[in-house]
Simulated assay, not measured.
Amino acid sequence: MNIIFKKPVNFEGVEHLSIDLNFDALTGKDLLKAEAEVRAMGDRTPAVSFSMKYQAAVAAQAAKVPVEMILSLPAREFSRVTMLVQNFLFNED
Rank of each mutant, 00 (worst) to 15 (best):
L21T: 01
A25R: 15
S72Q: 09
I3S: 05
N10S: 13
S49N: 14
S18W: 06
A40H: 05
A47S: 11
V85W: 02
N91K: 09
E92S: 13
L17P: 00
D24E: 15
L31G: 06
K53M: 11
L73C: 06
V81G: 00
E77V: 09
V81W: 00
A62F: 02
F78D: 08
V48P: 01
K7S: 09
L26Q: 01
E35Q: 11
H16Y: 14
F88A: 04
N87L: 14
S49E: 15
I4Q: 14
T27Y: 09
I3N: 07
F11E: 01
K53E: 09
E37I: 05
M1F: 01
A60I: 10
K7Q: 13
K6D: 15
V81H: 00
D43P: 00
F50H: 11
V38D: 01
F50E: 12
S49T: 13
A40N: 10
A75M: 08
N22A: 12
L32G: 02
E35D: 10
E92Y: 07
A40D: 12
E12P: 01
G42F: 07
V58H: 03
G28T: 11
S49C: 08
M52G: 03
L17Y: 08
S18Q: 14
K6N: 15
D43M: 01
Q86N: 13
L71K: 11
Q55V: 05
T27E: 12
S79D: 12
R76D: 15
A57H: 03
P8G: 09
E77K: 01
K29F: 12
F23L: 02
H16S: 05
P46S: 06
S72D: 11
E15M: 10
K6E: 15
E68N: 03
G13L: 08
A40G: 06
M52A: 12
L26W: 03
S49Y: 11
E37V: 07
I19S: 02
D24A: 15
A57M: 04
F90C: 02
L89D: 03
A47H: 09
F90L: 05
I3K: 05
L26M: 03
A47C: 04
L84Q: 13
L17T: 12
Q55L: 11
F11G: 00
G42Y: 01
G42E: 03
A36M: 10
V58L: 08
L73F: 04
G13E: 09
L26A: 07
A56K: 01
P66A: 14
L32E: 12
E37T: 12
I4D: 12
N10K: 14
L32T: 09
F78C: 05
P46A: 06
A63E: 12
S51Y: 00
N2C: 08
F5T: 05
S18L: 07
M69P: 07
E77N: 06
Q61I: 08
F5H: 04
G13I: 08
S72M: 07
M69F: 15
A34D: 04
A60D: 08
N87A: 15
G28C: 05
R80P: 00
A36E: 15
S51A: 01
I3Y: 14
S72T: 07
V81F: 00
D20R: 06
P46K: 09
A59M: 04
A56V: 01
F23A: 01
R76E: 15
Q86E: 14
H16R: 09
P74G: 12
